[in-house]
């Protein structure tokens, strides 16, 4: 077996084919001018609503700016302020903890679930399980967070269970107690077994050619051996994608915290950079500082993704010819 990255030869081949298409337009294909013309409108929307705000934020990160007012160029003052801001530091610590927890749970549990589905003999059951893990995705995130908020309340299932078991001393304000608030937020979505991650892993596993699986079986590899020595290396592409997506979700996301603890409290125990950016921009009217936080988040994600791409080599299976 040969685990290769897509070699450049096929890319070159593709390039040649495209080159040929450029020279002569097949009959029935619309003229290029029309194609580009039609692409112009989406491009205009994209530029107006995605790129211009992003570029504006880039500029305003170096200004002092209240919404509706004029901005004043302050150079690196916002970044210096953040460097000395204990709340920002705390938010980084919090997001790091959440990130570690998210990697530990969102990457492993879905893989195990995908493995179980993949090993099901019945196609019908496999299909049912796939639907079952995707079904919860139709529930809007806000509803999920509100449900969890209720579960953590004094009238919620968690407290009720402890009371029924006579464990009154264990009862606490899960989202109010500084010792538990961040972990209560992290646990939302338990047991982390549903959603896209399972499907992505499953797609990776389903993509492994049958001949490879048969060969492994003939070589006498047991189930665990197959998972450790064959499945995991062959789904590394999916792992990489999920690592990037999880990191983006952790760094940029704050909706759950905003709904569960409302302001990143108690104190700043659940404040993350995304929420701190929002609070600075819309509650404290310090839009320049908010842009600076946003820029730092963007830079971090860029560096992370580039580094990951550079050091985490993955490839699709390609049989030797």
């Amino acid at each position: 077996m040969n685990l290769n990255r897509h070699d450049s030869a096929s890319a070159r081949g593709g390039g040649t084919a495209r080159h040929g298409a450029r020279r002569r337009r097949p009959a029935g294909q619309p003229p290029l001018a029309l194609i580009y013309g039609l692409l112009l409108a989406p491009a205009a929307f994209l530029i107006t609503f995605n790129y211009i705000p992003a570029l504006s934020a880039l500029y305003h990160a170096f200004t002092e700016w209240d919404i509706g007012g004029d901005s004043t160029w302050v150079g690196l003052a916002n970044f210096r302020a953040l460097a000395g801001d204990p709340v920002f530091h705390k938010s980084i610590v919090n997001v790091t903890k959440l990130g570690v927890f998210a990697f530990a749970t969102h990457l492993t549990v879905p893989f195990l679930v995908a493995e179980m589905i993949f090993h099901l003999k019945s196609e019908r059951w496999s299909y049912f399980c796939r639907v079952a893990v995707v079904l919860p995705m139709v529930v809007p995130g806000v509803v999920t967070f509100m449900l969890w908020s209720y579960m953590y309340s004094d009238a919620g299932i968690l407290t009720e269970l402890l009371v029924r078991l006579g464990l009154h001393d264990w009862v606490r304000g899960w989202l109010s107690d500084p010792k538990t608030a961040l972990w209560a937020v992290a646990f939302v979505g338990f047991p982390f077994a549903g959603g896209f991650n399972v499907l992505i892993y499953y797609a990776g596993l389903a993509n492994i050619p049958g001949s490879v699986l048969e060969a492994a079986e003939l070589d006498g590899l047991g189930a665990l051996g197959r998972i450790a020595r064959m499945h995991i290396p062959l789904v590394l592409q999916q792992v990489k994608l999920l690592v990037v997506m999880t990191m983006i979700g952790v760094v940029n996301g704050f909706e759950s915290i905003y709904i569960l603890t409302m302001d990143g409290g108690p104190g700043y125990e659940t404040t993350v950079p995304g929420l701190y950016m929002y609070l600075n921009g819309f509650s404290y009217q310090r839009m320049g500082l908010a842009c600076a936080i946003g820029l730092l988040m963007l830079l971090f994600l860029l560096v992370f993704t580039v580094t990951l791409n550079r050091f985490m080599r993955t490839g699709d299976y390609e049989p030797e010819t």
Partner: peptide, 18 residues
């Protein structure tokens, strides 16, 4: 007071005698 200050759902707790 209730353990949760923000999410205690006091109305339900009061109406159910807790």
């Amino acid at each position: 007071w209730a353990k949760e200050l923000k999410n205690s759902d006091p109305i339900r707790l009061f109406l159910t005698g807790r």
